[in-house]
Nucleic acid binder design. Structure first.
Lengths: 141, 141
DNA sequence: AACAACTGTTGACGACACCAATTATTGCGC
DNA sequence: GCGCAATAATTGGTGTCGTCAACAGTTGTT
């Protein structure tokens, strides 16, 4: 009987859990969790996003986005602005504090991935990243 | 600002979630979940295991193992036997039904990983698996 | 004007990780 | 042998999370 470790899908599942845990412990002191961090990082790339866009791109349920943006607003890292053309929507934008937080934690964030990929040489990490990106495909990530 | 997809750790986290979801939908009709399947597959390799061993090797909390083995016993896929040398421990063994279940679902299980790795050529899948196994390291997986 | 579709929001439910405490048993020091 | 720390399985509680249903406000269509 072949062992479970022989299954690439299960390896991905296991390492995904470990990676998420590492990220969360890294974010623990800031009061945020990985989900908040993902939203912040996404907002930093697009200069304002609708909540439904956050939901679609990050893969979280729309109802989850509500709470995440609430938390980020409470911390002063993001804020909701009314959408000019559609009064149903609200545009979430990064505040200066939020941008500063990303700058301050960027280095520590890289260390998390470094720690996870310790067993691999730089070239191997590059290969792994390329393959994972291919698997992630066009969709979110 | 670099995008979130540029982070290998986050990619792993995301793909881990997707892989787990794929496995769970594949197992949905059988009433099991990925955690149960992991226990079954492990039991198939060792011909009987203590619950603390399952906890350590699969990375689940000991309290979680209790419920998982309960479910597997209820389905007739595994059973607890008293350990001869230590009356505290109980040895969990696969039943014939459990072994048959693994045989019947083996092919479908492979399809799950195949579906996940669709974008990759066979040689690339091999490379990915090797790298992931290296990252997983000596410990569990 | 009537109606379907969409956005954000709230609420509920189950699954799950994590930790503390308990019971039964074992092994160790004395 | 006796006392005591350590261990295996179990129970329970807490917080997080994914998923779905329902809702109000708004938009677009016809």
């Amino acid at each position: 009987m072949r062992t479970l470790h022989a299954d690439t899908g299960y390896l991905l599942y296991r390492l995904g859990l470990r990676s998420g845990q590492l990220f969360n412990t890294f974010l623990q002191e800031s009061g945020l969790r990985l989900r908040h961090y993902a939203v912040l990082r996404y907002l930093a790339t697009c200069e304002g996003a609708l909540q439904r866009e956050l939901s679609a791109r990050l893969g979280y349920d729309p109802s989850a986005i509500v709470g995440l943006v609430d938390d980020l607003e409470k911390l002063g890292f993001a804020e909701r602005r009314p959408a000019p053309d559609d009064r149903r929507s609200r545009i979430v934008v990064l505040t200066e504090d939020g941008r500063a937080f990303l700058r301050d934690t960027d280095q520590a964030g890289r260390r998390v991935t470094d720690e996870l990929l310790t067993p691999l040489a730089p070239a191997e990490r590059e290969t792994l990243h390329t393959l994972l990106a291919r698997v992630a495909g066009n969709g979110l990530a």
